[in-house]
Design a protein around this nucleic acid. Structure first.
Lengths: 345, 345
DNA sequence: TTGAAAGCGCTAACAA
DNA sequence: TTGTTAGCGCTTTCAA
């Protein structure tokens, strides 16, 4: 059996440390640290010996230890609703890009619209001592974050504002966007318009409903409460609700869909109908241009980018009062929202 | 000024530690640790005092320190191509779910199909001492991971196999899926079929091309190399290539699109054409049913789930030789792939 | 230019 | 049942 005691080799499961590197290179621990971190004050010859030891041992700095000592983790946490949702995925990516530009890693997780899970994730990120936190909130009470924020974890809310605490937030203009979309339908002759949206405890859902009511009121149109549907966005539920508002003696002639999932199902249901029904959806969809779906588009990537930039501004020391940023939406007319009411309807 | 020295208060930026909690509760450090970690051997009364101190100080365990001591981080890293890609987003979510089931957090990042960035991310995750690594590789040489794997970081490749090292991999049947899709077009009368795919250094792209060639050969059909286009999937490029294969004296009558991004652009281009052109795309798309797009569907979520489960099996000690798992694809006929060649073409 | 010693906040091992 | 001590791997401080 070969004697390997003079120059330690990497063993399975046991990682070499700076101490091992120092021993192998015949230098002090601090010298290794200097080389690894590119600090000055090391002669080229010493540096070479250290680098050889690093390569020979397969050393990689343990950032856990570094974090413990330095206090900063160079990582940010993002809690969103669903990593797989086509609306949030670009937002996620935009946050990642900004984090990368600042040398930070991104930890993320899906709340699945469950306030408990949101809290669980956010606090787990805090326990990992992320430098900052971006949250698309599911819950309406964020006082659980007060100790974390007080302890210095920068926090920015995205897409929906914080509940019961004062914090930075970056939002889309849900109310204004919905109002514009509904006004667009009214301008094309509709008087009976349905609103099918997400659960009312979700801020964006209630804001969009408010936009709907505002547009109707501004046009002097009454709202029959049977036209309004707020609930889960599972396809079966949306399908039943769209069918419902299109039935009865006085069916609606147009539908305003409160988010991307509702729009997707609404398009499917309307495609099966014998007569065309006008539709405007909140959030854009891939291929919506080919299907001629009129939408109120939000820029999800910009939402994420803006929020992440605000986060890093805080991390760099910005101390103004919490601010709310509202980004505009954009009406994209593609046909479905310009259909007139069916004659006689 | 009030004297707060007797019971320390949380100060901005300075988090209380277990030591602070112990002092405030009048117990030893280890007792606090026991309470925080739910270990037995603490009287209810002591526990109550400790909990009060925890709440009073806003204490939260520092997992960085815990990680350093325990050696395990309860986190896994995922390197994928693009967090925002509709194909990878569900995969990401599926990995997250499995990680959650195992009490682990997920760190992720996008390589943007750049081998250097892939390596940078993977090694950054290793430096954070993730327990395991899931990689959708951009590069073709993964020897840089050898020291990490030797040091015990479990690694599973997803969607594409590892290059130059022996490692677990979970893949879709790219070759078989493409072969089935092209055979489907041939069965509907096509003899001149284009293949428009991603860059050939990407494993799935070359495998799909192999499937195309296999299907053509099996039908005894020649392949004109001008029908084959492998390159960037940026819309402008795909648009030009699709236009190209549809031009000239003997244009193709059908297009096989090598991935979701190519399909999206191909659908747009073909919609502008005066005559219908058959299309089968690799990867399913949202709303593809309404547009009648025939596809070879992969189950991205299953790909992610399977890979993550394999990863945790390794983390729990499974030591068999690296294994490659291939998941089947599924042809979904919706109309575009069943169009016959234009008469006379 | 280099290195020794202390300590970040926690858990493991052991003692009382 | 409870507490004390050592030490995880690194950076900071200070001395040589």
């Amino acid at each position: 059996m070969a004697d390997t005691s003079r120059s330690p080799q990497p063993r399975y499961g046991a990682r070499p440390t700076m101490k091992d590197v120092a021993a192998r290179a015949g230098v002090g621990l601090k010298t290794v640290s200097r080389v690894v971190n590119g600090e000055p004050g090391v002669t080229p010859d010493t540096e070479r010996r250290v680098r050889e030891a690093i390569t020979g041992l397969g050393f990689r700095r343990n950032d856990s230890a570094r974090v413990l000592r330095k206090g900063r983790t160079a990582s940010v946490g993002l809690v969103l609703e669903d990593l797989a949702d086509p609306f949030y995925a670009p937002l996620n990516r935009a946050v990642e890009e900004v984090a990368r530009d600042h040398g930070a890693l991104l930890i993320n997780g899906s709340s699945a619209e469950d306030p408990e899970r949101e809290q669980e994730l956010a606090l787990a990120f805090c326990a990992r001592r992320v430098d900052g936190l971006l949250i698309i909130p599911a819950g309406r009470d964020h006082r659980y974050l007060e100790p974390e924020i007080a302890a210095g974890i920068a926090t920015v809310f995205v897409d929906r504002p914080a509940g019961l605490i004062d914090a930075d937030a970056v939002l889309s203009d849900s109310m204004g966007g919905a109002r514009e979309g509904v006004a667009h339908l009214i301008a094309h002759g509709h008087r009976r318009i349905a609103f099918v949206g997400d659960q009312p405890r979700i801020h964006t859902a209630s804001e969009r409903l408010r936009g709907y009511r505002t547009a109707m009121a501004e046009a002097g149109l009454p709202v029959d409460e049977s036209w309004v549907s707020l609930g889960p966005t599972a396809p079966e539920h949306v399908r039943a609700e769209v069918d419902r508002v299109l039935s009865g003696p006085e069916p609606v002639t147009a539908v305003f869909a409160g988010n991307n999932r509702v729009t997707v199902t609404a398009v499917r249901v309307l495609a099966e109908r014998p007569h065309p029904v006008a539709l405007v959806g909140f959030d854009d969809l891939e291929l919506a241009d080919l299907l001629g779906i009129t939408v109120i588009a939000q820029d999800a990537a910009r939402l994420g980018r803006t929020a992440a930039e605000q986060l890093f501004r805080r991390l760099e020391g910005a101390t103004e009062a919490p601010r709310q940023t509202v980004l505009p939406t954009r009406l994209v007319a593609r046909g479905s929202g310009e259909l007139p009411p069916r004659p006689g309807a």
